[in-house]
Amino acid sequence: MTETLFTEDAYLREATARVVAADERGVVLDRTNLYARSGGQPGDSGTLRWDGGEATVAEAIKGEAVTGQSGAILHTLAPGSAIPPVGAEVTLGLDWARRHRHMRMHTTLHLLCSVLPGIYATGNQIGAEKSRLDFDLPDPPAKEWFTEKLAELVAADHPISTTWITEAELDANPQMVRTLSVQPPRGAGRIRLVRIGAEAAPVDLQPCGGTHVASTGEIGRVEVLKLESKGRQNRRIHIVLPE
């Protein structure tokens, strides 16, 4: 299993690790600060440096299907990149600008959930340039309403934190799961919750393994670009982060 350093510190831009396995498919390390593609959030990119070599990481992905190792994260390499030797100590550099936009986008999608209490998300996709969230919502408000509500939540600069509960606790509180398309990963015995706002009265609280900013004020300006109909009730909300 690859230790996921980003789970506890989403702001860790550089880390050292040791190569567990490496070939043309990519590199598996004993730990990583690069998020592996999951739950609609793209995998991180970056660099690997070691004594005598350097490689570009195209994307970090879940590597169990490729390596046969449960919990492994595979750092896929750009074509032509050198491959580090097994056992080598490497320095992992994160493409921070790209990751930070993903963090801002992902947190914004949580805020979208918070302004539609009781409405389930049916799909999502996070990107550095634009993102979208689908809802089971036959008659949505206008896009300007969403933009205004998000602006209020960003301006309030709510703190964002994480906590852990058991799988049994989640089973006893199924309303915490706001997405129908992505379910919290199970098997480890505990579930990570992302909380936006105060512990006593959170703005949003739901299971999530992704990376997020430390407070809503860090998101900056958000604009709902458009709303699309994707079926009789499914509505797709597109967001961007104008500079």
Rank of each mutant, 00 (worst) to 15 (best):
E228S: 15
E148C: 15
A156S: 08
H158V: 07
P207K: 12
A88Q: 02
A21L: 13
A156H: 02
Q175I: 06
F146K: 00
T147S: 09
T7R: 12
V19P: 11
I219W: 00
V19D: 10
V222K: 00
F146S: 05
K62D: 13
G80Y: 03
M1P: 06
A155N: 05
C208H: 03
R221Q: 11
A201K: 08
K226L: 06
L116H: 01
L170P: 08
G80D: 13
V115K: 00
L29T: 02
Y120N: 07
I219L: 00
T47L: 15
T162P: 04
H238L: 15
Q175A: 15
R232L: 05
A121G: 14
R236K: 07
M176C: 04
G210D: 04
G26I: 01
K230F: 09
T76A: 03
K226M: 15
H100S: 03
L133M: 03
C208V: 01
V154H: 00
G231I: 13
Q175S: 15
K143P: 12
P174I: 08
L77W: 10
T179R: 10
I83E: 12
Q233D: 11
L94V: 13
A188Y: 11
A200C: 06
R190I: 06
R18K: 14
A156T: 07
A78P: 14
H102T: 02
S38I: 12
I126Y: 04
I239H: 04
A15D: 08
T32G: 08
D204C: 13
N234L: 12
P242Q: 01
A198N: 10
E64Q: 14
C113D: 09
T179K: 14
V27A: 03
A22E: 06
D44P: 15
F135Y: 15
F6M: 06
P79Y: 12
G127I: 12
E129D: 11
G231S: 04
L92C: 14
A55F: 12
E218D: 11
V240C: 06
R49H: 09
E3L: 03
T76W: 06
L227E: 09
V20D: 04
A168G: 02
A65F: 00
S45C: 06
H100Q: 06
T4Q: 13
D51K: 07
V28W: 13
A128K: 05
I191F: 04
L12M: 06
A128F: 01
E167S: 13
V182I: 15
V203T: 07
L5D: 07
G71W: 08
A200Y: 08
E218F: 00
W50G: 11
D44C: 04
V194M: 02
T163C: 07
D51G: 14
H158Y: 14
T166P: 09
I61D: 14
P138I: 03
P202Q: 01
Y35L: 05
L241Q: 00
F146A: 14
L34H: 08
S114L: 02
T179M: 10
T211N: 09
S45P: 12
L205C: 06
D30P: 09
D51M: 03
V182N: 11
V154P: 01
R99S: 13
